[in-house]
Amino acid sequence: MRLLVLGSSWFLGRAVTETALAAGWEVTTFRRGRPESGDDPHGVTTIRGDYADLDAVARLAAAGPYDAAVDNLAYTPRETLAVARTLEPVTARYVMISTVSVYEGWPIKPLTEDSAVLECEPDAGPNPGYDGDPGPSTYGFGKAGCERAVTVTFGSDRSTILRPGVILGPHEYVGRLPWWLWRMERGGEILAAGSPDRLIQPVDVRDVAEFAVHCAAGRSGVFNVTGTGSTMGAFLSACREATGSDAAITWITDEQWLADQGVRQWTGLPLWRTYPGTWAVDSTRARQAGLVTRPLHHTVADTWEWLTTGKPVEHERAGELGISPDREQAILGVWRAREADRCGGE
């Protein structure tokens, strides 16, 4: 069977390509070929070009037919619409990687695939909609428009929409898990927010890739893709174990106080978000369709091994996360003084 992978060098696209090759697919990849994104995997046919360049996409179509395509590059609806229309005559099935951000209620409300989705036209341009905090984002609006572009072109019987939550694992470029691992490896007193019992549900990139390839073989529908669930405390313990750290974790339970210190949710402390729907995305439908996810501590350990023995490459989004060591220790000092004053006054 022949698979086309649009965007194959970074993180999920890379994992999809490797998974498909291991499963015996004949894989064609489409990528820009930037040097920092690494070499082409052995055994693939690579066509270079930009997603927005219809001449390059036409070359992809000419190299078909394909039994399926997995699109990791769908962000701007009108670009995705053009790509889908060009590939539709030579592609039997189209799998689009979307996001839970397409839901109107994310991250406020618990979500299923039947939850309301943001409204966006399939031919919308860049950055549609608006950004709310919390609430809708231009990223979510754009992905919703891309979903419509795929489904209006391929129909519901030939399209698959995957809506992952937070994806972690080896080759992660956003930096959420790497930030925590490097911070844990440095040791000392570590600031953590909220309760160690807070449930989280990241999903391993390799599990998303395996489900995407599984769907490419003939599974239609819309699927949320999230992990089985762990806790923030178990996650940080796994980071400590993987790095061999002797770090001490201090939980700041007054999260509004922490926010008042200027620590931003989601970015200042990766994975920290207080909104109740953040980690309440139901993926029962995907599990019934074949999604299998590994324990989070396996993801943590494998990512640390990659960071320390592999060849991580810096992505353009690197450096956006976390707080500085000095800022962290200053906040912890103020917190300790606050708690001492509070206890002394009781």
Rank of each mutant, 00 (worst) to 15 (best):
F211W: 00
A212R: 03
H214A: 10
A216D: 08
A217G: 13
V222D: 11
F223P: 02
N224C: 01
N224I: 01
V225Q: 00
V225P: 00
G227W: 14
T228M: 03
T228R: 14
T228P: 07
T228D: 15
G229A: 04
S230F: 06
T231D: 10
G233T: 15
G233Q: 11
G233W: 06
G233K: 05
A234I: 05
A234T: 06
F235Q: 07
F235M: 15
L236H: 07
L236I: 06
L236P: 12
S237N: 13
A238D: 14
A238L: 05
R240Q: 11
E241I: 00
A242I: 05
A242Q: 12
T243D: 04
G244Q: 12
G244A: 06
G244F: 11
S245I: 00
S245Y: 01
D246K: 08
A247D: 06
I249E: 13
I249R: 13
W251R: 02
I252L: 15
I252H: 13
I252F: 09
I252T: 12
T253L: 05
D254A: 10
E255C: 14
E255T: 15
A259R: 11
D260V: 05
Q261I: 08
V263S: 14
W266I: 01
W266Y: 10
L269D: 05
L271W: 12
L271N: 13
T274P: 09
Y275E: 15
P276K: 05
T278V: 10
T278S: 12
W279L: 08
W279T: 07
V281G: 15
D282R: 07
S283W: 01
T284Q: 10
R285F: 02
A286L: 07
R287I: 09
R287N: 11
Q288H: 08
A289L: 03
A289I: 01
L291M: 02
L291Q: 02
V292M: 11
V292R: 15
T293R: 08
T293K: 04
R294F: 03
L296N: 12
H297Y: 06
V300R: 14
V300Y: 15
A301H: 15
D302Y: 10
W304Y: 06
L307H: 07
T308N: 11
T308K: 08
G310C: 08
K311W: 04
P312R: 04
P312E: 08
V313T: 05
E314N: 06
